[in-house]
């Protein structure tokens, strides 16, 4: 149940934050990784990190539930 809520809220807020992100940075001589960005491969990295983070949080939620069971047990 939490999982569904978490996932949905996550994606909603990602969309909100990304809409702020449409403004393009000014170009300068300073090198930024624009190639990686334009090819869209950066999304692979984002996906991997996001999976890790969400995995850790789901794990925390499951520990939380286990502890709750123990607390209610006595």
């Amino acid at each position: 149940m939490y999982y569904m809520k978490t996932l949905m809220l996550t994606f909603l807020s990602i969309i909100c934050l990304l809409r702020m992100a449409v403004a393009q940075p000014q170009m300068a001589q300073i090198e930024m990784a624009t190639g990686l960005r334009s090819s869209g491969k950066i999304w692979v990295v984002v996906l991997v990190v996001l999976t890790l983070i969400i995995g850790v949080f789901l794990y925390l939620f499951s520990i939380d539930r286990k502890i709750r069971k123990l607390e209610n047990h006595k």
């Binding site: 809220l9 807020s13 984002v46 996001l50």
Partner: peptide
């Protein structure tokens, strides 16, 4: 707790994809 999860994961995505100042 849900808020924490949402905030951290959305900051990851926005942190990778959002615009940042171009600095030397």
């Amino acid at each position: 707790k849900i808020l924490a999860a949402v905030m951290v994961s959305s900051s990851v995505v926005a942190g990778f994809m959002g615009p940042v100042p171009v600095l030397p």
